[in-house]
């Protein structure tokens, strides 16, 4: 369970880590939009090169990014197979019995795979280089215009940050319970269907019980320290926009503009 890289913060000291979380969130959204502008391989190439530079600047290892691909590999293979059977455009490249493989299918699949991989890199970069609390702070700031429409932006941000804060705690707790039950002879891997259900129950029930307990304790602790839902709050840490943030946003917007231009022209 320690091998989960998706959404995990890696504490390093790099250019990307020091960027304002708002910059990173906005940059991520712009890049995600850019990925869906259909200009073919040139577009993916441009975004890919940009991400490669960002990756080097962030000091994250390539093996880390590779690991974050792994959970989606199954989905990619699945997509590949579905596409091969469903898309029937372009030339026929290969014929096996009654099955024809069209060039359109292959190219479409490569597009989808590239898109997915790029999206994974982008989101992994965001979560790996931004502390969860900074992330929610950035999110709250970005959502603040909605507060005028009576959207409880602060409460939403607080909920997200609490949820994020408790992911590692719950993982740790799950691991602990898993070990405790393994000590009582639970075998998560083998056994009949009924035994497996029992094994999962022995994990989930204690996890729920302790989550509720933790939530109760947390609520009490927050109230004891004067937290009031909906009250005006000030912040100790202030977000600052620096020159590197402008550079980042400028280059990302540049990419989006370039892709739109290529598409239009």
């Amino acid at each position: 369970m320690n091998n989960i890289t998706l959404g995990r913060f890696i504490p390093l000291n790099s250019f990307v880590h020091k960027l304002d979380p708002r910059t990173k969130i906005v940059a991520m959204m712009i890049l995600l939009v850019a990925i869906f502008i259909p200009v073919g391989f040139i577009g993916y190439g441009i975004i890919g090169v940009f991400l490669l530079i960002a990756l080097i600047l962030s000091k994250l290892s390539f093996s880390f990014v590779w690991k974050s691909f792994k959970p989606s590999l199954f989905m990619l293979v699945f997509l590949l197979i579905i596409n091969m059977f469903l898309i029937k455009t372009g030339d026929i490249w290969l014929t096996i019995g009654t099955f024809n493989l069209y060039s359109g299918a292959v190219i479409q699949t490569i597009y989808i795979v590239l898109r997915l991989l790029l999206m994974i890199v982008i989101t992994t970069m965001l979560t790996a280089t931004t502390k969860p609390l900074d992330l929610t702070m950035g999110l709250e700031d970005l959502l603040s215009p909605l507060a005028k429409l009576n959207v409880p932006t602060h409460d939403i941000a607080m909920m997200i940050s609490l949820a994020l804060r408790f992911i590692p705690t719950l993982l740790e707790e799950a691991q602990r319970i898993l070990k405790a039950q393994a000590s009582r002879g639970v075998d998560m891997e083998s056994g009949s269907f009924k035994e497996k259900i029992q094994a999962i129950l022995s994990l989930i029930v204690p996890l729920f019980v302790s989550s509720f307990q933790k939530a109760d304790d947390l609520a009490d602790a927050m109230e004891a320290r004067g937290y009031v839902v909906g009250a005006e709050r000030v912040r100790y840490k202030q977000l600052k926009f620096t020159f590197s943030d402008f550079i980042t946003l400028f280059s990302v917007t540049g990419i989006l503009a370039a892709l739109i231009l290529i598409k239009v022209l």
Binding site: R176, I177, A180, Q181, R184
Partner: peptide
């Protein structure tokens, strides 16, 4: 490993959280 776990009983810290 099951037999090993039967012979070595391990009680965790705050073991009460494992009741289900």
């Amino acid at each position: 490993i099951k037999e090993l776990r039967k012979q070595v009983g391990l009680v965790f810290q705050f073991a009460e959280y494992q009741l289900f």
